[in-house]
Design a protein around this nucleic acid. Sequence first.
DNA 1: AACCCAAAGATTGCATACGATTTGCCCAGA
DNA 2: TCTGGGCAAATCGTATGCAATCTTTGGGTT
Lengths: 236, 236
Amino acid sequence: MSIGETITLSDNATEDRSIAIREALRNAIIDRRLTPGTKLSENEVGSLFDVSRTVARAALQMLTFEGLVKTERNRGAFVSNPTPDEARQIFASRRLIEPGIVAAAVDRITAKDIESFRRQLEEEEHYMTARGPSARRAEIKASGDFHLMLASVAGNAILQRFMDELIARSSLVIALYGRTGVSSCGHSEHFAILDLIERGDAKRAADLMLHHIDHIEADLDLQPKHGLGLKDALSL
Amino acid sequence: MSIGETITLSDNATEDRSIAIREALRNAIIDRRLTPGTKLSENEVGSLFDVSRTVARAALQMLTFEGLVKTERNRGAFVSNPTPDEARQIFASRRLIEPGIVAAAVDRITAKDIESFRRQLEEEEHYMTARGPSARRAEIKASGDFHLMLASVAGNAILQRFMDELIARSSLVIALYGRTGVSSCGHSEHFAILDLIERGDAKRAADLMLHHIDHIEADLDLQPKHGLGLKDALSL
DNA sequence: AACCCAAAGATTGCATACGATTTGCCCAGA
DNA sequence: TCTGGGCAAATCGTATGCAATCTTTGGGTT
């Protein structure tokens, strides 16, 4: 993806370049290539993608809206460092929304969709066998992708956008607070949820989704990450 | 609010001016002073608020994120003209989220909050007696404010932001598709919901909220709005 | 008369320039 | 040596200018 110094954006130059940059940064953040707290200077981002500060700024503004980036006036933009409380709010939001998405998906999913889901899940299993940080990133990403695909077949663009944001922030949270080898059970739950959806059992599918989210959250170690904010350093 | 030609933003000049402009435009849109389809030219907005295009552009970009404004590349920004389908998605989203907000509010609401809610609701009743377009705007706004206040006591910043967006877009939808004298029953339902919350009856409060949303949506006439393009004016 | 094409006007997309604010550093003084 | 003030570098916030694109209008052709 990187060529020398500048990063070439996939050829959607017809689209707004700021959107392409947002996507690139988004992926980097949820892949944990950009860790929380990293400063995203407008100049740096701009020169990295070979655009002016104007468009870099627009991308950062979008990410700020999504909660992936926090900007401080006259100081700059930083990769978001979600607090345990934010993490809980994220998962609380998902518990509200995702069962409804599952229910909608049951009504609208096609055999073709299910086929595609299965292929995707099986492909992801390959990553699960491997270990290491790169595998872990792929695992986190794959876990999110399932939920995003579900949201896309639910047929509600607004909820889909909310889920985009929630999944991105969840990935950040999992990367920050996740214990090491956890999501394996989550992956099998994806299969189970898909089965229930295929059978049209909306109630059980929604319930299992709730449990699934609970499991994901339960596998987090939501202790305040000390050393990041000075307020914690003082209160300790 | 308007002084001569430029609009003076409340003295939060310390804050980002683009945010203040966003708020002003937002209010104008949900108050229906800016009707769907209205073009929001960067130059026009900028000179109205006495800022450069840069700042105006940032405000429009934020509104685009919220779905209140639609931008077309190289053409400009326009006040959003939600389709019936979008309207249905908005209310479907609200049906998912708001019962959860009510449940959270039951746990966290204080006596002080309830007091403040009651005052607010009673104050709104004054508007309800009046008729006319201005009263209608106040009615729509008041109806949304109740839901927003509820979201704010629920203690989940993410859901609160989602609700901000959903209420704003709902207001737009109600202004577009709402029948004339409808929300009166909705207002009494606000009282009833508040009572149930006060009693700590989360289940019933959430149920009533669901019905309330159903009522709001049922009072819409979700026919494709044909009259906004001039083509329809000619066909009549 | 209807249609097509071209040129002018307007508006956005983007880059750059300049002022404002913050941060970090260096040096003077205790 | 340590503290405090001030200066300089870096970065952001904003304005403005230029190029690209879209819309419109006018003229020419069929």
